[in-house]
Design a protein around this nucleic acid. Structure first.
Length: 511
RNA sequence: GGUCUCGUGGCCGAGUGGCUAGGCGGCGGUCUGCAAAACCGUAUACAGCGGUUCGAAUCCGCUCGAGACCUCCA
């Protein structure tokens, strides 16, 4: 594969040239959602980040197997007074089967990811469907002597592990510090050392999610599923493991240790971590109570939201920041993203329309004044293309890609106004660039059209025609009345040089 | 408290030892019956104080400020 893709590897803390283990195949595992609640803006970030990675690797020609799990057992609600399995807790609250909760929120997650134009992963395994694999992995670790059983629970022996391995190498922690700084928590007395972590937990009587195992009726420790499922579907060693920075420690650190012992080798070549979305400078998270649900963004129904924001606005907003930077939420920022996206898509629409002009045997009418041959700026489009690829290859720098696209938009508009010109070749190159980068890689879609019925379109054509007649007769009363009444109905008329167009005001709905 | 990260113009956000990031907003303009929309142009920045350097927003130190993580707990 010919490319210069460099990826920031959390493990080495530097950018490395991407070289997969078994070209042209790439294995990528990303920590997916815990399906005990509705997806919020924070969920959109890793999904979109690794969607970008997935799409770009495919674009480069790799055959990518993308595994993103669904956590439906084991994760805990740390903020609850009494720690309890998140899913079991929710189930009891709503008096339904745990699997019903899991199904409901999985479906919701899929629904919203689809709206965000996030591709489905190649495999989406559930933790509850891989209990056998997890038990098998625990057995291997026990056999290797790096775990111990205590009252029906199994714990990983971090102290022993760190004698021969570097526990903490991913997150940059030292075992001594970890032990010294561990908070005193209840129920830790089973562990030989507070740094140890659970591989299997015995279920308490009230616990409704449980599976039989050689040690007790219980459930797997929360770090184990990713190791077990990653190994199962991607092999003992695979290329990329991704997830949010909040999972770096302990989750991914524990994964490294488990897999190292169970499989005898390093599991992951490149560790990628997306940063958090912040709100008023603080991490947005369900447990912090400051998360805005995706549904609320799309409906505008939230006290913090001045209006509704479309899925593509959210996607564009996220792609406008580099994935390793924090991204701060605000209405002002989102509205800026909304308008910027609109400008980008309008430019792309113009560019697309040239295709007709170029491909058609008939010359377009006077509204398409372009592509006079010129040699002055022959390499300009080529430079733009190179810049886009250079940015993508520089650790998926989507904000710089977008900045380059806006330069393309500027050129498109200048050509439209007759201030600049492009050769036919350049037009084709530019069209190809936008198609590839905007549609395939960034996966931004035009949301402005296609939602109205044909009847509405025809009616609007009629109304605009009538208004045009009134204007021709300088009957401004009638003309303005039509415009104002339509506006009350949420339809905005836009007069341009080449006649009027219209659009619905959905993007301006306020609560 | 420990470990780490960050501090860029009104807002969001790239980049980086000397070369315009970009978007939104503002301002000016084009268009327009008016308005809106659209388009064009444009100003404002690198938390503070020292140091290294021919040159630092970019490297080093300190100060101030902000943030993340610090474990299974039932």
């Amino acid at each position: 594969m010919e490319h210069n893709l460099t990826i920031y590897n959390t493990l080495t803390r530097k950018k490395e040239l991407f070289k997969p283990l078994n070209e042209p195949f790439v294995g990528m595992y990303v920590c997916g959602p815990t399906v005990y609640g509705d997806p919020h803006l924070g969920h959109a970030r890793p999904a979109i980040t690794f969607d970008l990675v997935f799409r770009y690797l495919k674009h480069l020609g790799y055959n990518v197997r993308y595994v993103r799990n669904i956590t439906d057992v084991g994760h805990l609600e740390l903020d609850l007074d009494e720690g309890e399995d998140k899913i079991a807790k929710k189930a009891r609250l709503e008096e339904v089967e745990p699997m019903e909760v899991v199904q409901f929120y999985s479906d919701r997650y899929h629904h919203f990811m689809a709206l965000l134009n996030v591709l489905q992963p190649s495999i989406e395994p559930r933790a509850s469907g891989h209990i056998i694999e997890q038990i098998g992995m625990i057995q291997k670790i026990l056999n290797a002597g790096f775990a111990y059983v205590q009252n029906g629970s199994v714990y990983f022996d971090v102290v022993k592990y760190s004698q021969s391995h570097n526990y903490g190498k991913l997150s940059g922690r030292k075992l001594e510090d970890l032990i010294a700084n561990t908070r005193e928590l209840e129920g830790q007395e089973e562990k030989r050392n507070p740094a140890d972590f659970a591989l299997w937990k015995k279920a308490q009587p009230e616990h409704i999610m449980r599976w039989p195992s050689p040690w007790s009726d219980g459930f797997p420790g929360w770090h184990l599923e990713c190791s077990a499922m990653g190994t199962k579907y991607l092999g003992d060693t695979f290329d990329i493991h991704g997830g949010g920075m909040d999972l770096l420690f302990p989750h991914h650190e524990c994964e490294i240790a488990q897999s190292r012992i169970a499989n005898g080798k390093e599991a992951v070549k490149y560790w990628l971590h997306n940063n958090m979305i912040t709100i008023n400078g603080q991490k947005m998270g369900k447990s912090l109570g400051n998360a805005v649900m995706l549904e609320e963004f799309f409906s505008g129904n939230h006290p913090l939201l001045e209006k509704a924001y479309s899925p593509m606005t959210i996607r564009f907003f996220i792609l406008q920041a580099h994935y390793r930077s924090t991204l701060d939420f605000s209405n002002e920022a989102l509205q800026g993203a909304e308008k910027g996206l609109k400008r980008l898509m309008a430019g792309m629409e113009t560019l697309k329309s040239w295709q007709l002009a170029v491909g058609s045997t008939q010359q377009k009418d006077t509204t398409a004044p372009l592509h006079h041959c010129t040699t002055a700026h022959g390499s300009r489009i080529q430079d733009l293309i190179s810049s886009c690829y250079a940015a993508m290859n520089d650790d998926f720098n989507s904000p710089v890609v977008i900045a380059n696209l806006f330069e393309g938009v500027r050129i498109i508009n200048a050509v439209t106004e007759g201030k600049e010109s492009l050769t036919s070749d350049e037009v084709i190159q530019l069209q190809h660039l936008f198609q590839t980068v905007v549609t395939e890689i960034l996966a931004l879609q035009d949301e402005s059209s296609g939602e109205q019925s044909e009847t509405v379109d025809r009616l609007m054509e009629l109304i605009i025609g009538l208004r045009q007649d009134a204007r021709a007769k300088k009957d401004w009363n009638a003309s303005d009345r039509i415009r104002d009444e339509l506006e009350k109905l949420g339809i905005v008329i836009k007069d341009t040089k080449n006649g009027a167009t219209w659009e619905t005001k959905q993007s301006q709905i306020t609560r």
